[in-house]
Design a protein around this nucleic acid. Sequence first.
DNA 1: AATATATCTGAATTATCCTTCAGCTTGGAA
DNA 2: TTCCAAGCTGAAGGATAATTCAGATATATT
Lengths: 192, 192
Amino acid sequence: MTVDAIYTATIQVLLADDMNKLTTTRVAERAGVSVGTLYQYFPNKEALLYAILLKHFEEMARAYEEIAAHHPPAPLSELAACIADTYVSVKMVNPDATEAMYRVAGAINQVRMSSNVFARIGMAICNLLAQASDATFKDPKQVTFTVLSSLAGLSRASFGQLAAGSDALARLQDESRLVAQAYLHAAADKDA
Amino acid sequence: MTVDAIYTATIQVLLADDMNKLTTTRVAERAGVSVGTLYQYFPNKEALLYAILLKHFEEMARAYEEIAAHHPPAPLSELAACIADTYVSVKMVNPDATEAMYRVAGAINQVRMSSNVFARIGMAICNLLAQASDATFKDPKQVTFTVLSSLAGLSRASFGQLAAGSDALARLQDESRLVAQAYLHAAADKDA
DNA sequence: AATATATCTGAATTATCCTTCAGCTTGGAA
DNA sequence: TTCCAAGCTGAAGGATAATTCAGATATATT
């Protein structure tokens, strides 16, 4: 419960200013607790940031795994739309959190992100692609990497436009589908 | 000349550690000058980071403007490849610089990036798209936004894999072309 | 050589920040 | 009521960083 308060406080502080203004004291007081409390749940500031990033990626992984586990065989177009929609909808659940993620992302060394979330996401999407009833892929991992990266870029840019009075977010879902479908069709070996 | 040394020093420091370790003193000593000198060229640390980002984006803008100015009418496939290649090649000129950019990007408030580089890049690509001999676009600005964002995402992810022994960078150009061509064809109103 | 101009130096100042820990509060168990 | 455990507090310690400025150095001009 306290931990949750700290999570949301971190996001708010991150949105109010940039990374440089994110101090443990500020987060704590925004969460309505004292610094000491924060340090009872996180050994240091870096750990807090890692935890938040991880939480976010894990939601993404859960979403894809859930869908991959249940999705019946379908035409590639449908799968592509599904991949795009899942990505967008996870990001949309909490736009503030999403934008906050983008602010931390570069500040900490993701290489040291020793966790298998990325692998889980990749695997789930690979599994989804295997359900295509009208196509196969020579190198599914590469294809997965490219779709995901493109969707990520599109999403990041769209959220970045939030402050400016742009309607980029409104078009995000349509454009994501278009990108996913177009690329996947181009990358597939079609049968039928 | 001193300024150049500071630029490259900043990139090196950024690569060695993350944003949190980027201090003006460290940059200065890496550049072989004193902190005081650094402050003669940049009013503060933030200005230094802005300047570096701007420089990078300006190279991108120059590249696209140059191409857009000279490119004759051509089939959409060729233009798409051209758009992708330009993006990738600018990033490849100096991979270190590129990776460094990705580390600063989130840390500073890009909204306050009061400059027209982004507009210049968008306009150049719009002009390129207008050269398509076999297609037109209903909303060229939206299309430009999406291609650019997707390419950015793909590029960012590929450079991120640099540390891991992945060959993502080797495939970056091919995948970028594929994404650009597939999406642009899907988004276009074809004539002929 | 003497003067002027431009550039560089780096210790000192000032301002935060991260982190710790001795003690406080609270709610329930004995 | 008394004691205990779990969680909370926030001032203080220790460290580091951004920025300044009085003076050194170097280059060019007269």
